[in-house]
Nucleic acid binder design. Structure first.
Length: 901
RNA sequence: GCCCGCUUAGCUCAGUGGUAGAGCGCACGCUUCACACGCGUGAUGCCGAAGGUUCGAAUCCUUCAGCGGGCACCA
């Protein structure tokens, strides 16, 4: 068999995914065990316009590890994929293309034609991210792929809307909303970002009617004064007590406006008097409602001044108007001062345009009521369980505790159209279909509301709608809901996570997911957030190309929930690990004649060799640790265990210890058994690695002799699929095969080999040169252990002759010596190579180290407080260590003597 | 203003009430019949600062500093 010396990730990545998909390996139906427990995840649907970034790759890796792991455990496992129609982003993208290609706007071609174009765009380009997910190895069930604008999901959206409307949770009315003057739509508070900005604070004076007095107000937006309908002060503010109830003359405009008292005003800030513009500020809007103030709209939807602002301002941009207002105040002598001031401005998080707060008639949802059940659940039962719990559970709870109305309607064309119809008299009919609305209205002359719903409205239903809701008979809904875990980034806890909980609780009466895993954020190497505009993003596809998907997945899994600076070094090291796996398998396969997976470990473990008992113990311990780590979402620990098991235990020791047996020239049952054992351990290791490294493990597993249908987990044996490692059983952690004694004995062998290697290097013995070893085993059983592994010890230390004695009594003076655990010692006679002074110095150094250690332990042991209060086992452990260390010191002293003066 | 996180080897990060860890990098030596994307050996840290709790603190508590984040306010 030809096996290249270097692993080629591309080859493996192109070889297996389409078969897995085609044969239905990802679908829960592959599992024929009717009693199997269920494990399900719905993907956070990426924008259909999007392409894969590191954040996706991170989430997908975590979800895929969990999915593959549970599938191999025999769970009926579903990971459901899909995409989001992403209202604004998609619409903007298609509008831009329309402008570029045909020089037209959406209004030129009309709503119907435009939405048709978006659908066409979606069909043509929308699959980008799903193709990329296949590249990642994501084991999602593509047969259940969903899109938020699918007919079924749209039906769910209408159902959600209508039911909430009927219960009075959704209403239409005027309200203060965030308006994006560029995108020409209302936005929710979660779709805008606050940014601090260096600006100015203007102190404006308003004359009091019938008096010389002036009231000074401070503002960052002087242009809004044209719409002022009051000035407010704190009711507790003595300075303004007499002014309350009096009238001011609004400069420029000449309008008479009252001075009102309101708790909202902070007397400490600015002048303690606040200009009130109910039509252009959320706080002023609320204040205006409390005091029944008129709303004067002076800024329009294009952020230009209206006729209400006065003839000389009408049509001016808001910033031009600002300058002009300030000039006017200066002319009038009413501009008290202007100071530099840093304040927050609100920007559209799509186009970065400064938001204009406007009063507008929109549809709203009373979130507070929907949020009550999730709030109780998190407070009473800490469900769902957040990982990491800190700080996310609290963040989530605090959010639910302070919910306000959600602006649902968007003035866009791409999205779910609001299921509300108006008759000629303006009466509204909210219905699941137009027919229903007509029937209710008793007329066919109805106009549907032109607006669409916030994209997150459909996202809020994702776990239930993708599984079949509102069809309560849906088998998927019954089987897979609630989902097991939601894996996502922290920035959509409010936008999405909390809302899925609301709809799940409301419509299914149960939480949408048991756990919520929040991934970390990946920064660039300078600690900056990766972003398209900064151009500092690392493209996962490039990393895949350079290092392979499996290596990248290991890095991402290790990142888990930690914030990390991206670093190619780590990917490179896991690329090397993949190559290590490849070559370990290459070695096994090149020596596989006569061998088969599953053989070689016959009989009782007690009869096996030390190295066999040891590797089986290590394997089962690793399986135990990896299982526990995955179940605790501690992916880093799982990767760490796998890495060290495979590289250190399996490659550096087990294969090296087995090499002489495995590579024996002549065919023999012993040779074949040794070969089978190495293959069997390899096969188990590939299973352990598979959830993290699906491609290389499958590529290698397919080549192993003796694997096939019988290797599959019982639940998958009936499936009509090519046998695959992904449907084998994840290695059990068999406690009875964890052998502490074998591990301890193996540690003694490893220490012996390491000490001899150390001597060889320190004394510059040529690697090719054979040495003689004399082992003083101390007569307590270690001799037998070393004896049993003699051939291996010789090979690993490149020793020709090994004498195992009780002590080093009659070893030649010209020997390098080292102490080992358990009272054993080793000497390497090196006539002619030994510089006695240097060797004495080496051993003296070692003795000093041990003496320091002894001092520390003895100091602790002589502390009566420690001996009395520390747990007995800790004291005992320290005593043992002290004994061991003094034993070593004694032995080192004897070695110095033996070296002579 | 309130809250949270981080601070450990040159770099990126694990870890944990009881002898300081990994990978990369570094030094030295190796064409050892799977792998130089390798093998072997080695060096490297008052675990951000100061207090406290404890027999024992890098780990728990308090305060502080630097960095990062969230929420509220921002007239």
């Amino acid at each position: 068999m030809e096996i290249p010396k270097t692993y080629d990730p591309k080859q493996a990545e192109e070889s297996h995914y389409s078969r897995w998909e085609r044969e239905g390996c990802f679908a829960p139906e592959a599992n024929s065990d009717a009693s199997a427990p269920v494990y399900s995840i719905v993907i956070p649907p990426p924008n259909v316009t999007g392409s894969l970034h590191m954040g996706h790759a991170l989430q997908h890796t975590i979800m895929d590890v969990l999915t593959r792991y549970h599938r191999m455990r025999g769970f009926r496992t579903l990971w459901l994929p899909g995409t989001d129609h992403a209202g604004i982003s998609t619409q903007i993208m298609v509008e831009r293309q329309l402008k570029k290609d045909e020089g037209k706007t959406r209004h030129d071609i009309g709503r119907e034609e435009f939405t048709a174009r978006v659908w066409k765009w979606k069909e043509q380009y929308g699959g980008e991210i799903t193709r990329q997910m296949r590249r990642e190895g994501a084991s999602v069930d593509w047969s259940r792929e969903r899109f938020t604008m699918d007919e079924h999901l749209s039906r769910a959206v209408r159902e959600f809307f209508v039911r909430c409307y009927e219960e009075g949770l959704i209403y239409r009315g005027p309200g203060m909303i965030n308006w994006c003057p560029k995108d020409q739509t209302a936005l929710s508070d979660l779709e805008v970002d606050k940014e601090s900005q260096a600006g100015k604070l203007y102190y404006l004076q308003y004359p009091v009617k019938g008096s010389d007095r002036r009231v000074t107000v401070a503002t960052t937006r002087p242009e809004t004064m044209l719409g002022d309908t009051a000035v407010a002060v704190s009711p507790k503010d003595e300075r303004y007590k007499e002014l309350v109830g009096q009238t001011l003359i609004l400069p420029i405009v000449g309008r008479e406006i009252p001075v009102v008292a309101d708790e909202f005003v902070d007397p400490e800030f600015g002048t303690g008097a606040v200009k009130v513009t109910p039509a252009h500020d959320p706080n002023d809007y609320a204040l205006g409602k409390r005091h029944d103030l008129p709303q004067v709209q002076v800024i329009d939807q294009f952020a230009r001044m209206t006729a209400e602002a006065g003839a000389e301002f009408q049509g001016l941009d808001r910033y031009e108007a600002r300058e002009k207002v300030v000039e006017k105040f200066e002319e009038l002598g009413l501009l008290e001062k202007v100071v530099d001031y840093e304040f927050a401005i609100t920007k559209c998080n799509r186009c970065r345009t400064v938001i204009e707060p406007l009063i507008s008639t929109q549809w709203f949802l009373k979130q507070a009521e929907l949020g009550r059940a999730p709030l109780e659940l998190i407070r009473d039962k800490h469900e769902p369980r957040f990982v990491p719990e800190n700080p996310y559970e609290k963040v989530y709870e605090n959010w639910l505790a302070g919910l306000y109305d959600w602006t649902l309607s968007r003035q866009l064309w791409w999205g779910h159209r609001i299921p509300a119809w108006y008759d000629e008299a303006g009466n509204v009919y909210v219905a699941r279909t137009e027919e229903e609305a007509r029937a209710r209205a008793g007329t066919d002359k109805l106009e549907q509301d032109p607006d669409v719903l916030d994209t997150w409205f459909s996202s809020a239903l994702w776990p239930i709608s993708t599984l079949g809701w509102p069809n309560e008979d849906s088998a998927d809904l019954k089987t897979f809901y609630p989902t097991s875990v939601l894996v996502t980034a922290r920035d959509i806890i409010f936008l999405w996570v909390s809302r899925m909980m609301m709809t799940g609780m409301k419509f299914e009466g149960r939480k949408a997911f048991d756990d919520v895993f929040i991934t970390g954020t990946i920064f660039d190497k300078h600690g900056q957030r990766m972003s398209k505009t900064k151009g500092n993003g690392v493209d996962p596809l490039d990393v895949f190309d350079k290092y392979g998907v499996d290596a990248t997945r290991l890095v991402l899994a290790s990142i888990g929930s930690t914030d990390t600076r991206w670093n190619d070094n780590q990917v490179e090291s896991y690329r090397n690990f993949a190559n290590k796996i490849w070559n370990a398998a290459r070695f096994c396969l090149l020596n596989s004649e006569g061998a088969q997976v599953g053989r070689g470990f016959e009989g009782e473990p007690a009869g096996w060799s030390l190295q066999d008992r040891w590797i089986v113990s290590r394997l089962n311990k690793t399986a135990r640790d990896v299982r526990r780590a995955i179940e605790e979402y501690n992916f880093h620990e799982a990767v760490y265990s796998l890495y060290h098991f495979f590289w250190d235990d399996f490659c550096d020791w087990y294969i090296e210890l087995s090499k002489s047996d495995v590579t024996a020239g002549d065919t023999s049952p012993e040779r074949d058994a040794a070969r089978s054992r190495v293959l069997t351990v390899l096969e188990q290791a590939l299973r352990l690695l598979h959830p993290f490294m699906p491609f290389i493990t499958e590529e290698l597993w397919q080549r192993l002799p003796g694997v096939g249908r019988d290797s599959l987990h019982a639940a998958y044996r009936a499936a009509d699929v090519t046998p695959t490692v992904m449907l084998t059983e994840f290695p059990r952690a068999d406690e009875s095969l964890i052998d502490e004694r074998a591990e301890e004995e193996m540690r003694a062998v490893i220490e012996l080999v390491s000490r001899v290697r150390n001597i060889r290097t320190e004394l510059s013995v040529k690697p090719s040169e054979e040495v003689r070893l004399v082992i003083g085993a101390g007569g307590n059983g270690l001799g037998n252990i070393f004896n049993a592994s003699l051939a291996q010890i010789k090979r690993l230390t490149r020793a020709g002759e090994v004498d195992i004695k009780d002590s080093l009594a009659d070893v030649p003076r010209a020997s390098a010596r080292a102490v080992l655990a358990g009272g054993a010692e080793v000497a390497v006679p090196l006539e002619g190579l030994i510089d006695f002074a240097q060797e004495r110095a080496r051993i003296t150094r070692e003795r000093e180290k041990q003496e320091k250690e002894l001092q520390k332990t003895e100091a602790q042991l002589s502390n009566p407080n420690f001996v009395e209060r520390a747990p007995a086992e800790k004291v005992e452990e320290l005593r043992r260590r002290a004994a061991e260390v003094s034993q070593r010191i004694k032995a080192l002293g004897e070695m110095l003597e033996a070296l002579g003066e």
